[in-house]
Design a protein around this nucleic acid. Structure first.
Lengths: 102, 102
DNA sequence: TTAGTATATGTCAGATCTGATATAGTGTCA
DNA sequence: TGACACTATATCAGATCTGACATATACTAA
């Protein structure tokens, strides 16, 4: 119940505190969501900067268009592992993660 | 063959370029390793700052001492997911990850 | 309207991860 | 020396993830 709501709310511009209180998240749960959101937003940004469709990105990353879509919509079946591996494959380095989390 | 070597080499103070060339890593593989190293070093640092033994940390994180050890030694069976979830459970927030990757 | 392109959603078998357990190694103290 | 605390390593059943596929939805152009 929690997870599906979160992205929509964040995207709708709700303040963190408000979302956290509304969904009764612990600090750790909230931090984890912020990290996830930062990563999937970064991924979509990079893909679009490189003018790739999800299908093209899928080929590069040796996965399927559907998983790319799930990554960008914050689907709970997508792990931080997959997002980070995808980001570095598209060219992100350690330094870029500083910006991603800033 | 690659993965086991990496931590030791990095810990021994080798420069990134050198390790990367020696192990014939792609940029993406190298970036991923740098991210992993940053995370498991950060985890150990936080655990020690909080004066927790691996056993105590394991209880907090609802896992086992052996997995904590694997996390800190960069065992390949440990995912970025687990490391990031553990870090936020010990109190790290998005902002802390800026420092971790800097 | 239809066709074409891009993205989103549902499902699942096979791959990978994880907590748990056992055990080994290391350091310290008496 | 032995006992104890801490950490490292090996193994594996059950849990979770992932690529692939099917299908749906959204948008554009003719």
């Amino acid at each position: 119940m929690k997870k599906e709501k979160i992205k929509r709310l964040k995207d709708a511009g709700w303040k963190t505190g408000t979302v956290q209180e509304f969904l009764e998240l612990t600090d750790a749960e909230n931090a984890l969501i912020e990290v996830r959101v930062a990563l999937f937003e970064a991924f979509q940004k990079i893909r679009k900067e490189q003018r790739l469709t999800q299908k093209q990105a899928a080929k590069l990353l040796k996965t399927s268009q559907s998983r790319i879509s799930k990554m960008e919509t914050g689907d709970p079946s997508v792990t931080l592992d997959l997002m980070i591996r995808s980001l570095v494959t598209l060219g992100a380095n350690k330094k870029d993660f500083v910006r991603i989390f800033k």
